[in-house]
Amino acid sequence: MTNDLRVGVIGVGMMGADHAHRIVDRVSGATLVAVSDPDTARASTLAGQFNGVRLIADPLDLIADEGVDAVIIASPGFVHEEQLLACIEHGKHALCEKPLTMDTESSLRVVEAEATSGRPLIQVGFMRRFDPEYAAMKALLDSRSLGRTLVVHNIHRNKTVPDSFRSEMIVRDSLVHEVDVCRWLFGEEVASIQVLAPTPTGLAGEGVLDPQIALFTMAGGGIVTNEVFVNCQIGYEVRCEAVAERGNATIGLGQGVFVRRDNHYGGAIPDDFRDRFGRAYDLEVQAWADASRRGEVVGPTSWDGYAATAVCTAGMESLLSGKAVPVELANRPDPGCRA
């Protein structure tokens, strides 16, 4: 493909609208041509901000449209399977925001359909792989200059979330990022997960277990600790420390300039994920657009999405029991998906 990639966006809430502006303002080689959302008024308002962008009411019609080359899926997770299967049917590259789907079985159906098609088409929106700090940590660990990676510690804190953000969503929608990060950093699968819930903050919704502590045992024996706290009240904090045989590395210690003055020190803490990972999203979508024009997938694959869903499904079971739950994965189909 020598011309710009003609992109349609499905779901124009906060994330989808952000991606629409990203395509128009900050991504080269791609053009926004259509949007779709059940809230047609909101979609129409967004489309009206750009020249030549069409509103297509039915997302399946957008996917099938001959004027659309590739699709960004930012719709709710429960419709992802149908939309991804349509993308596979029509041979359209897709960047799908997490989760791939809402459960392990439907995620596996997507993986198998893509493999049967014989073409890799799906990239999952685990943007941390594109964050410069995470990418530098991955390169350092892969170099083995610090020896084998033994332990990883993750902290994932949001300032606040709506009361509708329930306990299981902390696992499925927040912890899922740590799942993907650790599979990527270690280069292996999560073998088991245990989710523990301390006394919850009084600032969470009624009955919500927040914060949560999750423990991963990796297939090679490494251990991961994760704190996810979605009502921490401070700001959006994401940190990661990797402990290896001959040293350790930490990212996410601060935003902007770190100042020491008048017996105080510190830096800025962003309000939300768009501030912390804005550059990562830009790099992610640019890489997706470039790869789609070449007919390739360069980021997290449908298999990565399936594996993350499987870990989170086991995590939600552990949240109820407090016990470690093994993660069981199907045999990886071939061809179609790669690590």
Rank of each mutant, 00 (worst) to 15 (best):
H93Y: 15
P132H: 01
P120E: 03
N158V: 05
V152S: 05
K159I: 12
N154R: 12
L85F: 04
M102G: 00
T101A: 05
R157I: 04
Q83E: 11
K98G: 11
G67Y: 03
T116S: 15
I155G: 15
R148H: 08
L55Q: 11
V110F: 11
R54C: 14
L55D: 07
A74Q: 00
G77Y: 04
P132I: 04
L55M: 15
E89S: 10
P59C: 14
T149H: 04
L55F: 15
G125Q: 00
S143P: 03
I122F: 03
A113P: 13
M127S: 05
F126K: 01
I155P: 05
Q123A: 08
H93N: 12
L146P: 00
I73D: 02
P132V: 04
H80Y: 04
D103I: 08
E105N: 00
K159T: 04
A135S: 14
E105P: 00
P132D: 03
G147Y: 10
S143I: 00
D58Y: 01
E89C: 05
M127D: 01
L146F: 13
A74P: 02
G118K: 12
M127W: 05
R144N: 10
V71L: 07
V68N: 03
M102S: 01
N154S: 13
H90K: 15
L108P: 01
E89A: 13
R148W: 03
T104P: 00
R109Q: 11
I122P: 02
C87I: 01
